[in-house]
Structures are given as structure tokens and as C-alpha cells.
Write a protein that binds this DNA or RNA. Structure first.
Lengths: 212, 212
DNA sequence: GTCTATATATCGATAGAC
DNA sequence: GTCTATCGATATATAGAC
């Protein structure tokens, strides 16, 4: 729990962890390089041996979180058989999405609330990465409609509503707050199926707890 | 469209409008008093004749937006007869919520994303105001369960999911973006009813377009 | 109620010794 | 790769003339 030197973690990684907490709780613009350095246990100037600017730290954290989320979801979907129903794909997608946002709430909050701190190039790249999730979910919903198992109120708005419902889990979920990750994920899978009028299919989960 | 002097608007109101746009698009911490002053068409020092600090501007905007939302929703619910079904109350609540977040997206985004700029006292007051909406929706859902018209997956999580789905409308809705406010509101009313397994009741809307 | 001028503090980032 | 010291810019807020 000491801020500075966790064994086996290099300085850049300690900087990432310290900056993540500060950005998530105080905001990117409200956090100074001196605060980050103090949390790491070094002087402000030494940060520039590891990151070229404050924006690069934010970019590193934001991009890393989205790439992890993408890998998390793709892994879950890849474990499904080739002839999997759209309903089962939806269950896996929602389960992975909710689990990630519950267990990586600080990283998720940076992605969703501190994007304006990025420069234009990085900002656009993040928007592009986020769009892939919308397209992925839209594809699953379209499949379900073709199969006849889903009936949508509106395809684009359903994608927005379902995704935002899952993302918002990062705003309130707390470990040890009376609800387990499994319970939340199961509830949200059921809610998403109700929104597309499909019947929830059981979720295949990884053996362990998921990303942290 | 000129930034400074709309006829009949006093300086404090011009400051509110200018600061609102800057806070919503650049973020509270990233916006300087000089930027606000430039948008108003005065010097930075003159702002302090109308607001005692930058935080007070944010507080004024945030509190005003939440009070307007509360009034907007209470007015919609008050127009319903005393014996109104939970289903119709849900329709009115969602309709009012979505319409407000679509037509007041900048104010809504300040409430939901710039709260960390407030001091502790003001922050807590905002959290308290927001909780009233959760309790209001929770009451409607409970009514529906008692009536037998709703069947919830989980009552607390349903409140979170439905509210966040509506709030997020402020993140993407654009006037003249191919979807009318009425279409969006109708879609979200249907989605919310699906989430509680009620059948959507028609919405009574005010004659005009709503708040702006 | 606006202006100019400024007090005071802090910001991100860099230079150079060790 | 860390430190100390500092540059130059900018921040919020205030003082006093008009």
C-alpha cells in the first residue's frame, strides 16, 4: 500500500498507477505533475525521464484501457462456437463489458470523462476505438433480428442505450459494496435481453475473476 | 449570434451562457476566467462584479440545471390524474427526462461531468439533488410491482440502468441530427418499459417543445 | 460596472550537476 | 535516473482610477 515502490514494478508503472488514481478522482486538468510526482515519491522533473509530457501519460492510460477492453471482449466472443446464437453472443458481450467496467472503474472513468485532455490526434483515435464497440454490438443485434430472436425498438438507439447502461457501471460499482460482479453482470445481461426482447442465454465465464 | 450583448440580457446572464458553453466543451478546469471574459466581451476582472469566483459560476449553472430538471419532471408528473397507473407514470418520467437531456445537453453534461470542480459543500448538495431522481424512479417502479404491472430483474440496478440510459442522451443528441426529440423520447419510453416488462402507455406532452 | 495594472501562486517543462 | 533550480507562461483574484 506504500505509494512509491511496489516490488518488481518499474518507475513508469508506478507513475501510471499514481496518475490513474489522480486523474480518475481529481480530473486530468486539476492534477499537476507535482502531485503525480509526490504520489510516486520522486520530484516533478524526474517524471520526464519516463513520459515526455503530461498528455502522454493520459494518452498511455486511455489507449491502454481501451485496448484491454477490446481484448477482454474479443476473448470472450472468441470462445463461443462458430454457430453461436445472437442471444448467446449478446450475453457474452454484455457480461464482458459490465465486468470490465466494474473491475476497472478508474480506467473506464478516464476513458469516458477525461478525453478532452487529449490532443486532437489522440482524441480522434480514442473515438475511433470506441466506435468499434458500437459496431460490434450493432452487428450482434442485426444478427438477432435476422435470426428472428430479437425485435428492436430502434437499432441505433438500442446500441447507445445498452452501451451507456454498461459503461455507467464504472460510476457507481464498488468492490465489497453488497453486490458481487457476477450479480451485476447477470442483471445487466437480463436487462439487455429485455431491451431487445430476447431470452437471456447462460454466460460462459472465464475460470477466474476477470481483469483488474 | 454575437457573443456579447443579446438585447434584454443582463451581463450576468451573458456570463452564464458563455461559461456554460466553455465548461461543457472544454471542461471546467481547462477554462480560464480570461476565456469566459473574452467570450462575454469584457475584461477578466469585471467578471467579479457578477460572480465572486469561478466556482460560483459552475455552482450557479449546475444547481440551476438540476432545479430546472426537477421542475420539468414534477410538472409532467403533476399533470397526471391521481389514479394514474405506474406504467403511465413511468412513461411521463422517462419522456420528461429524455427531453430535458436532449434539449439541455450542455447543462446536463456540466452536471454529470464537471461536478469535481465544485467545493465539498456544493458537491454534496448536487449529489443530494440527483438522488431525488433515483428515489422518484424507484417509487414508480415499486408502485408498478405492487400493481402487478412491472416485473423487475433488480430494483436498484434497474433504476441505475434506466437513469443512466436517459442521461447519456445528452452525450450524443444533436438538434437536426436526423432524429427528432419526440422520436428519441418515444424510443426510450419503450426501452424503459421493456426493462421492467410493462407495456408502454402513451405520453401526454406539453403543447410546445419543452425547455431549452 | 467597466477598465488597467498587478499581487500571488502554480503550472508544464527544461537544464545541468551528480 | 534522480536531484535542485529555474524559465516563461498563465492561473485566480484584487485594487483603484474612471
Amino acid at each position: 500500500m506504500s505509494p512509491a515502490s511496489a516490488p518488481g514494478a518499474d518507475t513508469a508503472e508506478v507513475i501510471r498507477r499514481s496518475a490513474l488514481k489522480l486523474f480518475a478522482h481529481e480530473g486530468y486538468e486539476a492534477t499537476s505533475m507535482r502531485e503525480i510526482a509526490a504520489a510516486v515519491g520522486i520530484q516533478a522533473g524526474s517524471l520526464y525521464n519516463h513520459f515526455s509530457s503530461k498528455e502522454e501519460i493520459l494518452w498511455d492510460l486511455t489507449r491502454g484501457a481501451l485496448l484491454d477492453l477490446r481484448e477482454h471482449i474479443d476473448t470472450a466472443l472468441a470462445r463461443l462456437p462458430a454457430d453461436t446464437s445472437a442471444s448467446a453472443k449478446l450475453s457474452s458481450f454484455i457480461d464482458a463489458h459490465v465486468r470490465f467496467h466494474a473491475l476497472n472503474s478508474e480506467r473506464a472513468r478516464i476513458v469516458n470523462q477525461q478525453m478532452s485532455g487529449l490532443n486532437r490526434t489522440h482524441y480522434r483515435e480514442i473515438v475511433g476505438l470506441r466506435r468499434t464497440f458500437e459496431e460490434q454490438l450493432a452487428g450482434i443485434l442485426d444478427d438477432g433480428v435476422r435470426e428472428g430472436s430479437f425485435s428492436l425498438v430502434d437499432s441505433r438507439l438500442s446500441v447507445y442505450a445498452i452501451l451507456q447502461m454498461c459503461i455507467a457501471v464504472s460510476n457507481w460499482f464498488r468492490k465489497g459494496g453488497g453486490l458481487s460482479v457476477d450479480e451485476v453482470a447477470t442483471t445487466y445481461v437480463a436487462l439487455a435481453h429485455r431491451m431487445v426482447i430476447g431470452s437471456p442465454a447462460p454466460v460462459r465465464r472465464r475460470r477466474s475473476g476477470g481483469t483488474s
